[in-house]
Amino acid sequence: MLVTEQAGYAVNDTWLVSDINLTLMPGRLAVIIGPNGAGKSTLLRLLTGELKPSQGSVRVNGQNLNAYAPAELSKLRAVVPQHTILAFPFTVIEVVQLGVTVPGLMAHGAKSERLAEAMLAKLGLAELAGRDYSSLSGGERQRVHVARALCQLEGAPPSDAPRALLVDEPTSSLDIAHQLEVLRELRAQARTGRIVVAVLHDLNLSAAYADDVLLLANGKAQAFGAPRDILSDALLSSAYRCNVKLNHVPDNSGPFLLPQACSVSE
């Protein structure tokens, strides 16, 4: 369980996020949505342990996140940041293997190589394994880092504690097919008993794949719950400061949003 209690983060007395109370359960895909500058990435960085909360606490398995040594933390959660810039020319499989070789989760090369190949295959990247990373498109790079994070989770030694996968806008550069592929994989990861948290911009993808949705605006949680409760005209309109009109598909499988249904409020 990943729990935040009154968690907040401030830079020079400006609160980027504050008073966040969340309980993220294993087996569920939680999606963080909200307008630009709402504090989505900051909240995610609090959940990864990268930032230390200025108020409140973030706990995993009952223990404060910042009390863990980085090496211990790396066995409990993997992270896909929004942008990763590589300093030197790695091949794709080498990048993915860093997920197990840097944390020291595996001793030998062949085993980590097989794992990396399997994770690449999961994201439809098997053919790119030997390619130079810098020759990839933005979308391919994003998926490579998802594969790297999966590698880290798979490579960690067996433990009863649930592991978490924290992903910041994994679909921002992806085409529609790969958006679906990545979200299906995130949901599959949740179904294996992991805590999965993703920051997403696409409300329709959130509606289709999230088990829980957190709506963030001005650094504060506006609502947290099932997609059909959170994705409502009133909540979205006030959070995004525009008039949002949601539709429902006839078979009642969830809400969807068309761009033209949203007009900027005066």
Partner: peptide, 9 residues
């Protein structure tokens, strides 16, 4: 940040 995520102090 990535190095920290991967367990490096």
């Amino acid at each position: 940040a990535e190095a920290f995520h991967l367990g490096i102090d």
